[in-house]
Structure formats: structure tokens, C-alpha cells
Design a protein around this nucleic acid. Sequence first.
DNA 1: ACTGACCATTCTAATTTTGCGAATGGATGA
DNA 2: TCATCCATTCGCAAAATTAGAATGGTCAGT
Lengths: 310, 310
Amino acid sequence: MVSSLVPAALRYADQVARSGSIQRAAKELNVAASAINRQILQLEGILGVPLFERVAKGMRLTPAGDAVVTMARRWHADERRAAADLQQLQGIHQGHVRLVAMDSHVNGFLPTFVLQMAREHPRISLEIEIGSTDAAAAALAGGTADIAAVFNLSPRRDLHVLWNAELPFGCVTAAGHPVAARKSISLQEAVGYPIALQSRALMIRRYLETRHGWLFTEGQKVVETNSLQLVKALARSGHYIAFTSELDAAPELLDGTFTFVPVRDKGAEPQTVCVAIDGRKPLTRIGRIVAEVLTRNIADCLDEVRRKRA
Amino acid sequence: MVSSLVPAALRYADQVARSGSIQRAAKELNVAASAINRQILQLEGILGVPLFERVAKGMRLTPAGDAVVTMARRWHADERRAAADLQQLQGIHQGHVRLVAMDSHVNGFLPTFVLQMAREHPRISLEIEIGSTDAAAAALAGGTADIAAVFNLSPRRDLHVLWNAELPFGCVTAAGHPVAARKSISLQEAVGYPIALQSRALMIRRYLETRHGWLFTEGQKVVETNSLQLVKALARSGHYIAFTSELDAAPELLDGTFTFVPVRDKGAEPQTVCVAIDGRKPLTRIGRIVAEVLTRNIADCLDEVRRKRA
DNA sequence: ACTGACCATTCTAATTTTGCGAATGGATGA
DNA sequence: TCATCCATTCGCAAAATTAGAATGGTCAGT
């Protein structure tokens, strides 16, 4: 027995309409073609009209059939909505949440977050898209994402920041790098070393360009890439330093591979990381649960990194 | 098997919600209580929530149950609408039409009309209420009738007369009555004979009172009744003449039992018979079919009566 | 013209689902 | 305590559905 309230006849008719033939629908539904055929004939009998036109290569909906299939699909949607409403009614945390995060989070707090969600809220399914801050903002505003965890989000009227934290500007170096021993460093001194940088597509690069454009004048020993992993690999080599955030390098900071050295220049303003949603509609209860777990994960990650440094 | 697309489980749940208990719903649906119980338990299993609260005297919907039953009712309405749409799509004449006619039509054109409708449009169902002209007008205006076939309908802004015909004022007599041989008669002469009259409740009486009030002064040999059948029986006896219309007496005029003798006085204005509808909304296609068949029946009836007299 | 591949449809048998009726136990009111 | 109503379970029969085999039609390729 299939656990669906929509009658089999309507479901079969719907699939035949989509597939174009009984045989293909049968394969897709894993049901005998004859069963589908019989149900459709019966449906046509009950309704008193042909729902499909039998053509050589299969079946095509008649206008009557289109009306019936449209109704079937509406019932299907009704059923799904009712099921979701009932779960909500029962206080069961269930739903689907779409998240946009950044590439740098993938090896950072994201796996921990996902595992915690799976453990604590098994019925909440997540869809995590990795993108840029701009892409995240667009997705939120465009309704294709529910929550975003991103760096340096510019204030926007249509987005609502639920939480944010400052990330001191600094550089990350291999533990044995000469800079690693410093409690802080001036930018001037820092650029005396080879630098691995993220490309313009990444927000941190734009941040640096607006504040320290001179970094990018010709003659500087700079490697530019859009791959954070490559930046980290270069930094891990001990030859380069990387301008990135504690959060970007959290795993390596925690395991001692990297050291974070703040840049003390006055103009070295911190970056930010935030959890944001579409400001024009309330977050669902499920969404708030996800946002809370996400936020706590980021905050815990930062706390851990900062405790390690102290 | 019941020819409904809405699953039995939903239909049963709906009825239990309405009836308040499985036992009562079982009686109303003519289904075993255990079958209903089984279907409801199954539905609760599929949806994962209780739909009913079992109380001492039966069952009460839970909020979840209310949502499901609401959906079931929506599906039921969807199904009915879809069925009607499909019939419309097929060009099949189907529907339900409510007609108001007059008592005098019952033995006149009505049976012929109903038989023709049954023969030519088996899917159009008729609801025929016998009433007065006033009642018919009220029913049309009040939306409880679609079409009326009535005498002497006063013009009303909210009613639309599709067709009408004049009915000469005259008296109906038994074939052997002295008046029967006349081509026409004066009112003065006519009232020299015993008269069978319809009572005030009937439109023809009101017609006479407004035009020939003296008929009802004391001393006249008048029998008054609200029964047309009684009026006809008295006329059939040969002792009385009846003031009524060709249409009222059409069957007897056609079979020779009665003769119609017009009254030639100047004040003897004709009655009218008309087919009318509610003027504020268009008649459906089905309604127009009915009106057309009805109108043709009345017209044919009159033609036949008049041909017979010539 | 023939052949292979796809199709819808029918039929028989097996399986599943549904409904009936009897029985059980609980709650309530007299 | 008893009668009456209720929901629920169970065994059985009837009905419905599905699977699988078989049939015949259409079409594209050879």
C-alpha cells in the first residue's frame, strides 16, 4: 500500500501525463502497465469522458484530462501541505531550510553544525549552497535561500541580520614563520613577506582593496587565487603569509598549524561575519531553530579559536 | 463501489465529523461501523496524528482532524466542479433547473413538457413547484426558482419575460351546454347561468374582480372554490359555466369535453401567460434549453386548442 | 515489404483491500 | 445493576487492484 491519500488512479494519470505513455509511467512508478491502463480506463468511465488521446507513440491529455490532472496535482499539493501542517501542529521539528554559507566555512564550523543538526533535529533537512556574500544576499532577497552565514554583508533594507561578530583584521602564518611569534604586526612589516591573496571574487580581497589598495601595486610578492585551499596551502608552506580571518583558518588555528597575528594599523578595520535572513518575511520556527544552531556554532568556533590564542 | 474520486477514508472521516460518532455515520452512509473505524484508524496511521478525540458519546475532531476534513471537503467540491466542467466541456446538456408552474398546467402542457425533456435531455433534472403567480414571482426574485410559467404576471423590473401570449377572456362550458353553440357571448348573458369560479387565491379570480366586480354581488348563482379540478368537474356536469382560459382547459377543449366561448365585452381584456426568469442574472445554457422547450410546449398547446376550435 | 521496438489493451491469477457481522469492553444514565 | 450507546477487534467473504502473459497496432529503419 502506498501511503498517499490521492487515489492511485489520479496518481497514475498524472504520471502518464508527465511521461507521455503508460509504459514509461509504469517504469517510473514501478507498477505494471496494465494496472495503470486499467485505472485510467476506470477513471474515464467514472468521469464519462476520455482523459487521454491515444496516439501512436503513447497518450496525450485531452482538455478534460488536463483538468483532471490539474486537480490531481492540486490534491497532491494539498496532501503535502496538510502533512506539513499536521507535523507543525504536533510540535515536531520538521522542515526544509536552505542555507548559503561560504567556502571558508566548509572546513570550519559547517560540518560540526550539520552534524549537530542531524543529531538534534533529524527531521529538518538542510540544503547548503556555497557562495559569495553577494550571491548570498541575492539568494535571500530572491527567496531561494532562507538563511545566510556570510562575511562583510553590507547593510540592506531587505535583509535582516540576526547575529554578527567582528573578525579582527590580521594575517595567518605557518607556526614556524617569523611573523608567527608576534603578538601583532604592522601592515607595512607584514607586506615585507610574500603574500598569498584571495582574488577579487572573494569578499576579503575587496575589503583589502578598499582599505589597502597599495598592497596591489606592482612589485609586491603576491600570489592571487580564488581558492582558499590554495591560499592555505601556500601559507602552510611557511613561505607566504595569508591575509584572512580567524574564522577562515579556524581548523588550522585550533590544531596549531597556523597562527593568527592581528594587524594593528588604525585603518585595519575588522571584517564581520553574520547570520542573515530575508527581512521582509518572518522566519519560520524551523528556520529560527536552524539559525540558532548555526549562530551558536560560529560563536563557539570563534571562542575556541580565541581561547587557543590566549 | 461508489463512483467518487475522494478516498473512502476521507469521506468517512468527513461524515463522522458531521455526525459526531462512527455509529451514526455508519447508519447515514449505510456502511458498517467497523469499516469506518478501520478506515479512520488507517488514515491516522498514514498521517501520523490522531484526527479524532474519542469521547464517551462519540468522536470529536482534533485540530489536525479539522484540517484533514476541511481538505476532504475541498476535494469533494473540487470533484463536483471538475465533473461539471467536464460535462460542459463535452457539450453535454446536464444540470438542474427549478421551475414554477401553475396548478392548471398540471393536466395541461406540463406532462408533455416533462416527457419531452426526459426524452431529449435526460441529464437535465427538473424541479417543478406548483404555485401562484405571486409565489412564482417571489421565487424568481428570491433565487429559489430559475424559470416560471405563469398567468398575468405584472411587469417587474427584476423579472424578465422571455415569452408571452394572450389568452382571450371567455368561458368554458360542457359541449352540451346552451352556451356551447355560441361563437361568442356577452358577459351579461353568460352570468345568467350558474357559474363556477375560482377563489381569490387564484389569479383569474383577481382578474375578474378588478374588471367585473359586479359578478360577485349577492344573488348570483356562483360556486367559488380554489380547486380548478372542482371548477372543471362542475363545468363538466353541464350545469355550470366556468370562467377560465383556453390553457386551463386545454385537455378538455382538445378532447371535446369542453367548448371555449370568448366573452366579447369591451372590458373583457385577455389574460396572459408568460415564461419569465430572474432579470438580474443571465440564464444558463441549460436554463435556456428548458425555457425553449417549455415555451414551445405552451405555444403548441395553444395552437392545437385554437386549431380545434376553428 | 519486413522487422524490431514501442505502444495500449485484454485476460487470468494472485494479492491486497474493503466491508460485513459478531463479539467485546467501556461509559453513561436510569 | 441494567440497558443503551459507543469504539474497537477479529474472522471471513467479497471486491478491487496489481502482476504478468499475451495480443494487436503503429512507426521507423533496413
